[in-house]
């Protein structure tokens, strides 16, 4: 729910991520309306054009759809779509840096697997 205007991640991208997270967490359900551009801008104190850009990313990704004059809504199947996207990114965002650090520390793949098993218990 937090947005960091000084973060390295562009603000509009953070807006898109926040909305997707809320969809994943079932705080906004499929078919439900998401906050408007102005509501997002007011809440996070950002330019409305930036908020709009964030929502439009989700429209392009077919996670939201527009109803003219009313607002934006979560598409049927959006949750599955976000999950799929996140899974695709999982390797790149989490696994790769993990293995990089393991290599630097001389931890073998087998040891990493064991550590994961242990942590998962």
């Amino acid at each position: 729910m937090k947005l960091d205007v000084n973060s390295e991640v562009p603000i509009f991208q953070q807006v898109a991520e926040i909305i997707s997270n809320e969809i994943l967490n079932n705080n906004i359900l499929e078919g439900q309306q998401v906050p408007s551009t102005n509501e997002i801008a007011e809440f996070y104190q950002i330019n409305p054009a930036t908020a709009r850009k964030g929502l439009n990313i989700l429209v392009e990704d077919e996670i939201l759809y527009k109803r003219r004059g009313i607002g934006m809504f979560v598409k049927e199947g959006a949750t599955r779509k976000i999950l799929q996207q996140r899974k695709n990114e999982f390797t790149h965002v989490f696994l790769k840096p993990l293995l990089e650090e393991a290599r630097r520390l001389g931890i073998s793949i087998d040891e990493v697997k064991k550590l994961i098993d242990k942590q998962g218990e």
Partner: peptide, 9 residues
């Protein structure tokens, strides 16, 4: 700049 840049289009 960092205080207000999020307001600028």
């Amino acid at each position: 700049i960092d205080e207000v840049s999020s307001l600028f289009q």
